[in-house]
Amino acid sequence: MQLLNTLLIGITAGSIYSLMAIAFVLVWRSTRVVNFAQAGMALLSTYFGYEAVSRLGSFWIALPVAMIGGAIFAALVELILMRLLVKHASSGPIAGVAPIIATLGLLGVIKSVVTMIWGGQDLRIVAPISNNGFTINGETLVFSPLKLLVLVVVMVLLIMLSILFQKTNLGLALRASAHAPEIARLSGVRVDAVRTLGWALAGAAGAVAGLFQTVNGNGNFSPDSIEFSLLLVSGFIAAVIGGLDSLLGAVLGGLFLGISISFVLMYVSSGLFFIAPFVILLIVLFVRPQGIIGVKAGRRA
């Protein structure tokens, strides 16, 4: 029973990491930038969601509001910040680190502005359904209706995303611009617009990750909650495990990470919560540097 519990908790947490990893992969594929501000965007979207819940009273309205808000914000970031960055800081010794530094700066800006607007105290988003565990044969599982809901919503989003990428012309344009931007441009794809769209999709995915991370925890969140740093690191690690270039890899990476962390916490020590992702990342980088589904190009970005 303990084994099943550990596995289910791991899968739920892992599915949230998967969403965050997908956000990283979408941005990486469209602009070759690892967006360290992703956690800040998720935080901002969670506040959008909080506003929607407290005004309109429904989590089910808040979810799309947060997604749309997150998408618009991410698109603006790409349109303004990233394009300026490509124009100004693409040569000299700074070129390699400029995107990293710029997105970190953005993370700081978002965090300060959010704290100025909403204050630093804990706010609360109430989960739409119960987080009390299911009872089977008189034994109470840790797995709850809420966790099941998180899992279902994430799976539905993943299926929608894969339909978008595999079955639509837009998805084809997204894939073409990621793999061969010049050829895509020559074939009439508006690569710049597609890049912005990639960021917007990432913003929406991050918004869902932020909201679910909050309700899957204790429902409280603040600009300083460690949850968002954890989301940043776990999402990044999940994306790297999956090879950083593959959406399927991101999903598998997230689930792998979630389940591994859950097992480490249960069977080794619960104090290893923050160091476990780092160790798992190092092991993956040494054992399988190209990621689970990566091309054999090594880690040269």
Binding site: I100, L230, F278
Partner: peptide, 22 residues
Amino acid sequence: ARLSGPYLAGTTLALAIGLPSL
């Protein structure tokens, strides 16, 4: 030495968050 750019940044980021908790 086996990593570069964003990979290295992310790995060291994970360390910065993880190590103090030790």
